[in-house]
Design a protein around this nucleic acid. Structure first.
Lengths: 197, 197
DNA sequence: TAAAAGTCTTGAACTAGTTCATTTTTTTTC
DNA sequence: GAAAAAAAATGAACTAGTTCAAGACTTTTA
């Protein structure tokens, strides 16, 4: 069977953890929705009840909250081959506190709540896929939450560059500051200092 | 069937997400190992390859790393009805960076790597159980990692008290400081200040 | 392609959190 | 139940990170 590029990408992502028959692949793909978002437009805004979980096939998005003082706190940058969304809102149907905004023109595959439930019924193997996917995400979020409380801003910046070398060049310094958890001014000072070394 | 108390506890934890037949319950329990740890002794130390994932039936333990300066950073307190361990080391067989130490005499049920794999083969429903368990843990770690970078120490303390009102009274202020990510001295000042209000 | 809007840099004054040292209080141990 | 060990409180001097303001540089938009 001849698949389009975005479908090849998501199937190879899924194939990391489970094997699907040709029929299952087609069933799976039929449950997905193609979504395009222009740079600067929103995939989700605080207050929405999120309809989809997303897989990014092209582009870059930032996932963030805005605190009472209006300061943004970025929880992740989602680029090609990443999953994103707000699982809490997706599963509980409560309004999200997150914004997801495209920082580049982006293309995604979304799975709706109905289809997500259906997926587990029709291809129970996907329980395993998501079990392993969540297990791995968990490991990286546990690490990140430890870093947040135990590393200095400069150390967190160095870690970020090491972990996401390609992402650094695709985002603004201001957004990076929002991810590291500091002001853009201090981010600028850290970068000057680290690069001087 | 008449189960012992610790088994009733873990079965009701599992029953939150999946239904098991009587036979499956017995199979599941047969894969678990009972473990007791005395206060101040270790369940795991940095460098070990972790053999088990744990469910706590009694007591309290702290999960932490120690940084190059010798400062402890506590990633969770595990009390009754909580799961703990180091999934990264458990699944990859690489040495852990974590210490797990009992802060009270504690009792746990452990599942070994071999039995964990066996569990999924014999009762595939457990993929679903862990999928949902990890999904929920993920939500709370995403929140925690955001709090670490966006809230002040005082705000994190207030959040902790709200989320874990019972745990606060079972741990030392020093350990709480290690969780919040500040020095014991500053923790003391915050507590004095917050309670004065 | 000019104007506007947003991003980045730098510096000075400030605040949250650290470090170190000392004393008091609580818990552990024999 | 006394002695030792650990935890908690407090204060003074310090450092990492913030805030505000102003100017330079880049990107977006019409």
């Amino acid at each position: 069977m001849n698949y389009k590029e975005s479908h090849i990408l998501i199937l190879s992502n899924v194939a990391r953890f489970i094997d699907l028959t040709e029929l299952e692949k087609q069933k799976y793909l039929s449950l997905l929705t193609e979504i395009k978002v222009k740079k600067k437009s929103f995939l989700m805004q605080a207050g929405d009840v999120t309809k989809y979980e997303y897989y990014i096939t092209k582009g870059c998005l930032k996932v963030y909250t805005i605190d009472e003082d209006g300061a943004p706190h970025i929880s992740m940058f989602a680029v090609e081959d990443y999953w994103t969304g707000d699982i809490a809102s997706f599963t509980t149907k409560k309004p999200t506190r997150y914004f997801i905004k495209a920082t580049e023109d982006s293309e995604l595959l979304g799975i709706s709540r109905v289809n997500y439930d259906l997926l587990f019924q029709e291809i129970p193997k996907f329980e395993r896929f998501y079990r392993i996917l969540y297990q791995r995400s968990l490991v990286s979020y546990i690490k990140r939450s430890n870093h947040g409380i135990s590393l200095s801003a400069e150390e967190r910046y160095i870690e970020f560059k090491k972990k996401y070398p390609k992402v650094v060049n695709r985002i603004t310094q201001k957004d990076l500051a929002g991810y590291i958890g500091i002001t853009p001014e201090f981010m600028s000072k850290i970068i000057t200092k680290v690069n001087r070394k």
